[in-house]
Design a protein around this nucleic acid. Structure first.
Lengths: 247, 247
DNA sequence: CGATTGTTTGAGGAATATCAATATGTGTGG
DNA sequence: CCACACATATTGATATTCCTCAAACAATCG
């Protein structure tokens, strides 16, 4: 096996299902590019629970990918209130919304001990100039992030508390599957308060809905771990938790 | 004046405050590029009220900019219920969320008789390959769209009905100012039902909140036209319409 | 003008926030 | 390993917001 191919395999192995890997590896990178990439990306740097990766308002220094663990992103409004914008798991990209103002729009915080890959924004910018397929993939990923946000809008705008929780659980489950993990059980790395904040509900309502779902045999709940017992029922709650159809 | 400069001026004049113009003109396009651009972009094509520009699920054929009028974008969920994702005014870009799946994620419909500029996606793709500054601007615009969506999430997630209406009015007003128009009055091109759908409320609640604001002397309301009388009060409603700060 | 569509206003009820109390973890020092 | 303190989660009772249903009103269009 030539040295370059072995190198490619190592990177593939290191990055697995990561979005950055999808971004770089399969799309027409020749072996020189891969070698260059290895020197550009810092791989799997530890980030302890509670530490921030970047803060709202900071200049966009790098784009990140979650290698292990889990993170949240949150915006602070004028009054200093926090709104959680998303939860991020291995393979997810962080920092894309900073492309707009060249400044991070939110703060990213580790929900548990995590590992992060990082590529300097300037270096990525150069690479994108050199590799057309990388640009297309990058824009695809941003378009993806856009339509993800819009799906979330659809949930928050239309659904009642049960629909919101059901939608979130199904979403987390689906993302696990996409990464090749079992659809259930799901480890909820975030606190109830963070779930509630994200979904636009109160802590108590989150707790009540989860309890109700457990009583109905749809999920099994053990603090941070949720096992989905009845996917169909959950789909029903997610869909029909919506308001009336008259609008 | 050389022919190329005159040409540049014409395009500048035609496109005014348009996002596509910001995208193309000021950022390092040489005069040949501008000449090329003129042949690539269809300018100000009429789109009558009620007609769709593109539909959810269609392949991404082009990127659009609003030249005159107003449009809405909406997603249909599995049950055929509509969720309005945004309202678009002159200078706004449409179709960016299609970059993800190369497919339009929503349907765009004219709220009133409008005019639309259009550039074939394939042609834009080629231009982006040729002009690095255009790529950066394009990614900035996508990042901008991302953080716009996230601001909306912040509103829908945290605010009560008064806060939502107040935020929307201020947002529309600010966008008018950015385009060099007076901050007030605002013409609401959309129906109450569309406002309600967008904000995750019911028609009646929208109507009641607007009436209440008028009684309090914060706005003057005449069907489709809203004049903002007290910006500070509106800001207060927008900010403190939020739920408690304990989360 | 009548029919249709869109808007406003009113009364009642359901969903969810708020306040309060209890229970369950989780970490720390002895 | 235990005991304590502190954070987090659940459950209950009450209050409020907002949706639902209903009716009147206004605008638009043939």
């Amino acid at each position: 096996m030539p040295a370059t191919s072995r190198r490619l395999e190592q990177v593939n192995q290191a990055c697995g299902q990561c979005s950055l890997a999808h971004l770089c590896l399969p799309y027409g990178l020749d072996t020189d590019d891969v070698a260059q990439l290895e020197t550009e990306v810092e791989v799997a740097v530890p980030l302890p629970r509670g530490k921030t990766l970047f803060r709202q308002g900071e200049p966009l220094a790098a784009i990140y990918a979650v290698s292990a663990g889990a993170l949240k992103t949150a915006m602070l409004d004028a009054d200093g209130l926090e709104q959680i914008m998303g939860f991020y798991y291995p393979g997810d990209l962080l920092g894309l919304d900073g492309f707009g103002a060249q400044t991070h729009q939110c703060t990213a915080t580790a929900l548990e001990d995590s590992r992060i890959c990082r590529i300097e924004f300037e270096r990525l910018d150069d690479l994108i100039d050199d590799i057309p397929s990388l640009r297309r993939q990058m824009m695809r990923l941003m378009g993806q992030a856009l339509s993800d946000d819009e799906s979330l809008l659809l949930t928050l705008g239309r659904k009642n508390s049960e629909g919101r929780i059901a939608t979130l659980l199904l979403c987390l489950s689906r993302r696990r599957q996409q990464r090749g993990l079992p659809a259930s059980p799901i480890r909820l790395s975030m606190k109830r308060a963070e779930l509630a904040n994200f979904l636009g509900m109160r802590i108590e309502t989150v707790s009540r809905v989860l309890s109700r779902m457990q009583h109905n045999g749809i999920i099994t709940l053990a603090r941070a771990e949720v096992a989905i017992c009845d996917f169909d029922a959950l789909e029903t709650w997610a869909g029909h938790g919506a308001w009336a159809a008259d609008q």
